[in-house]
Amino acid sequence: MKQTALQFVRFILATSIIYSALTHERASAQGESVELDTSLREISIGSDFSGADIVIFGAVDDSKQQSPGSNYYDIVVVVRGPSEKVITRRKENYFGIWANGESRSFEKIPSFYGVLSTSPLEDITNAAALRRLYIEFDPTPFEREPPTPDPFEEALIRLKTQQGLYVKNPEGVEFLSKSLFRASLELPTSVAQGYYSIRIYLFHDGELLSWDKSIVEVKKAGIERILYTMAFDDPYAYGLLAVAIAALSGMVGWTIFGRS
């Protein structure tokens, strides 16, 4: 639970940064602008890793809303994890046994995709704008004319959602004051290593007013990092190390217990 304490420190930091930004009145000529910061810039996957929470803070400069609950602005936060190849397979029954049958592979799919907003996306702006800004995840963005529902694509999104890797929360962003808002996102244990981009959009009356982005890095740390790196960079040495450790623990076992 070290991360909770860290989050709190970062929360104070983020709040003070946002506060100073607000008091400096960095207003642009176009009106409102939006800025963001995260509770952690780096998430470590160590031996005690069992998922992590990212807290995203943002502020609207020159906010025109009177109170946090006035619903004057709409905020959309999009978090995208590193790309990966995913194979979706359909299970088929052969003589009473379920085996994997037909498959379809998707190249460069986001390993994680989170969309958090102040209200349902369709209430914020039109579908074309959502698509243009890549707000809603679409595994095959260029094959969609005319749109045909594909069971493999649907399964991909459904299963990723079940695993907590695709998250959609229309109540995930909350205004704390007339300009300060916060969103929190849970990363499950199975998150991929890499850079997670965070984009934030400020809407009013369906119109995009401003946006901002940031990056969070998720990486293995400590012994987990050493072993993972070695396993992939020098698999021979890693394999020999595994055998040596096994042989050694067998010998130690024999010396302690097996002598009789």
Partner: peptide, 14 residues
């Protein structure tokens, strides 16, 4: 092996 899977699809990252 024989019980009906919870979901008729599986996903896999090679």
């Amino acid at each position: 092996l024989m019980s009906t899977p919870l979901d008729p699809f599986v996903i896999h990252v090679p």
